Deep mutational scan, measured.
Amino acid sequence: MQRVNMIMAESPGLITICLLGYLLSAECTVFLDHENANKILNRPKRYNSGKLEEFVQGNLERECMEEKCSFEEAREVFENTERTTEFWKQYVDGDQCESNPCLNGGSCKDDINSYECWCPFGFEGKNCELDVTCNIKNGRCEQFCKNSADNKVVCSCTEGYRLAENQKSCEPAVPFPCGRVSVSQTSKLTRAETVFPDVDYVNSTEAETILDNITQSTQSFNDFTRVVGGEDAKPGQFPWQVVLNGKVDAFCGGSIVNEKWIVTAAHCVETGVKITVVAGEHNIEETEHTEQKRNVIRIIPHHNYNAAINKYNHDIALLELDEPLVLNSYVTPICIADKEYTNIFLKFGSGYVSGWGRVFHKGRSALVLQYLRVPLVDRATCLRSTKFTIYNNMFCAGFHEGGRDSCQGDSGGPHVTEVEGTSFLTGIISWGEECAMKGKYGIYTKVSRYVNWIKEKTKLT
């Protein structure tokens, strides 16, 4: 034993070699072989497995989906700052455009905790909710729209109204504003409101030439003092309507412009014939205590009207009353817009006519005020429907199939267009061939041609 100890002390290297040989010859039971080890760690190889990531292109799944990435790591994937920024906006807080917040056709661009709407022409605001041009839906104005110097929408209202708090709607500024039905039992019968379409306001006024200088022999019209197929109006439903009495009662109609003036057809009036105007009328054979009678003290036909040349060209006249009318729910003026808007309103496509005229061709006159909704007829169809001249200051309205029309005794009465609950004068009943005849239409004086003249002559002093 002493000898062994001496050998170990003198030859430590020998001992180490012996131990190493023993270990190498022993069977290893701690580690699995290569094949079995792979069965336990069965993990798919990654895209760049075996390579240094710093030297390969980034992978979106590896960089940002398996674990949260930084902007720089995302930049490695896209290799483009702009594309990385677009991805980053949604990656950080989701897609803010998912709810489609942009209105009126706006395009949404996502941002971090926010979004941006790219608005089409005519709109602005956070969600493109603000109209900035009158060309689109009248700028959301209830009545009139004008573009300011910086191309912003400025709404306005006709006389007797003021802008509401929203700067879009119009509200009454006087007790009985024009064009409004205020009798409670008839307010439910107000005709369907007309909503502004998209309009090209630059070209809204037709490029028409008034044929002022045409000389033409007097034409022989049949029954051209021209509501057939209409309905009984309720008291106060058309408070701007008046009836004219002269040699015979209810020979023509008219509309209240203001307390002192009536507008009617020029062919209705004769110099030297006494005319009485009755406002607030409903049943011409009954006294309903809503009527107001006034005498006409002055007749002003349009300066281009000449019955000797043509009885229905420039067929418009103004009547001055001896005493002002007292405005109330049964006696209310009709609204008159400017030339541009009167023309736009007419193009809405349908209007209402009213009167006490004959209820059928050569038949009896109506006792109760009649009204009828009539569609506008395109000019080409209008011209083809008659052998008589249709001037540019006239328009056609009615039904091709016949059966409904204005008729004798309705002449001078109103053709009105309702705009968001307020009625505007767009025409004056003038003439036609018979009444409600198939293929024939009622012919009306186009008020847009005469609004400046009306307003100039009827100013209240």
Score class of each variant (00 low, 15 high):
380 A>D: 13
400 H>P: 14
283 N>W: 08
173 A>G: 07
395 F>N: 00
435 C>P: 03
219 Q>M: 13
123 F>I: 04
151 N>V: 08
282 H>G: 09
246 G>H: 08
187 S>T: 14
416 V>C: 05
123 F>N: 03
403 G>P: 15
407 C>W: 11
217 S>H: 07
51 K>C: 04
182 S>I: 08
419 V>T: 04
235 P>T: 06
355 G>L: 07
268 C>P: 00
162 R>E: 10
444 Y>V: 05
93 D>R: 08
380 A>I: 09
140 R>D: 10
54 E>N: 05
369 L>K: 15
107 S>W: 04
441 Y>I: 10
325 L>S: 00
341 Y>Q: 15
124 E>Y: 04
50 G>Y: 10
150 D>G: 13
378 D>Q: 07
138 N>I: 04
434 E>S: 13
290 T>C: 05
275 I>Y: 06
274 K>C: 04
395 F>K: 01
155 C>N: 00
196 F>P: 09
146 K>M: 11
180 R>H: 11
347 K>D: 08
250 A>E: 07
18 C>L: 14
388 F>Q: 14
301 P>T: 10
423 S>K: 10
409 G>W: 07
3 R>L: 12
300 I>D: 02
73 E>Y: 07
88 W>N: 15
352 Y>E: 02
161 Y>G: 01
182 S>H: 07
134 C>M: 03
375 P>E: 04
379 R>L: 12
232 D>P: 15
112 I>D: 12
307 A>L: 07
116 E>P: 00
381 T>Q: 12
233 A>T: 08
249 D>M: 09
164 A>R: 08
374 V>Y: 02
394 M>V: 10
298 R>I: 02
87 F>I: 12
186 T>C: 05
25 S>Q: 09
128 C>Y: 00
131 D>F: 12
283 N>V: 09
194 T>C: 05
346 L>W: 09
191 R>K: 10
429 I>F: 12
255 S>A: 04
45 K>Q: 13
334 I>K: 00
17 I>L: 13
149 A>I: 12
35 E>H: 05
332 T>Y: 04
58 G>S: 13
97 C>D: 00
120 P>V: 05
40 I>W: 06
368 V>G: 10
304 N>I: 03
77 V>E: 15
54 E>W: 06
138 N>M: 07
171 E>Q: 12
316 I>K: 00
40 I>P: 15
19 L>G: 02
223 D>P: 13
182 S>R: 10
401 E>A: 15
274 K>H: 12
221 F>T: 09
364 R>N: 15
271 T>C: 05
194 T>P: 09
257 V>P: 00
227 V>H: 06
97 C>A: 00
265 A>L: 02
343 N>H: 07
88 W>Q: 15
184 S>P: 09
25 S>V: 15
140 R>M: 09
394 M>C: 04
196 F>N: 14
115 Y>I: 02
103 L>N: 08
329 S>H: 08
34 H>R: 13
182 S>P: 06
237 Q>D: 05
45 K>I: 11
308 A>C: 06
126 K>S: 09
167 Q>D: 09
451 V>S: 11
65 M>C: 04
52 L>I: 15
456 E>P: 02
420 E>S: 14
151 N>G: 11
225 T>S: 07
218 T>G: 09
195 V>E: 14
431 W>Q: 15
272 G>M: 07
31 F>N: 15
232 D>Y: 15
5 N>S: 12
201 Y>K: 14
172 P>V: 06
136 I>M: 13
460 L>W: 11
15 I>N: 03
199 V>H: 13
267 H>E: 02
12 P>G: 12
301 P>M: 11
99 S>R: 09
5 N>H: 13
449 R>D: 09
159 E>R: 05
345 F>I: 09
122 G>I: 01
325 L>I: 03
276 T>F: 05
281 E>K: 13
390 I>R: 08
157 C>I: 01
371 Y>A: 13
265 A>T: 04
157 C>M: 00
246 G>F: 05
308 A>G: 11
93 D>M: 08
125 G>F: 00
189 L>P: 10
92 V>I: 10
128 C>K: 01
106 G>V: 00
217 S>Y: 11
176 F>H: 10
181 V>T: 13
422 T>I: 12
220 S>A: 08
336 I>Q: 01
55 F>T: 15
326 V>K: 08
193 E>Q: 04
429 I>W: 09
314 H>T: 02
198 D>S: 13
231 E>A: 12
422 T>C: 05
360 F>W: 14
274 K>R: 11
377 V>K: 04
297 I>T: 09
87 F>L: 06
45 K>S: 05
81 T>G: 11
66 E>L: 05
13 G>Y: 13
455 K>M: 06
255 S>V: 11
81 T>F: 06
126 K>V: 07
349 G>Q: 05
183 V>F: 12
183 V>M: 11
167 Q>K: 05
324 P>S: 05
94 G>A: 12
307 A>E: 07
314 H>C: 03
154 V>Y: 12
131 D>S: 13
94 G>W: 06
159 E>T: 09
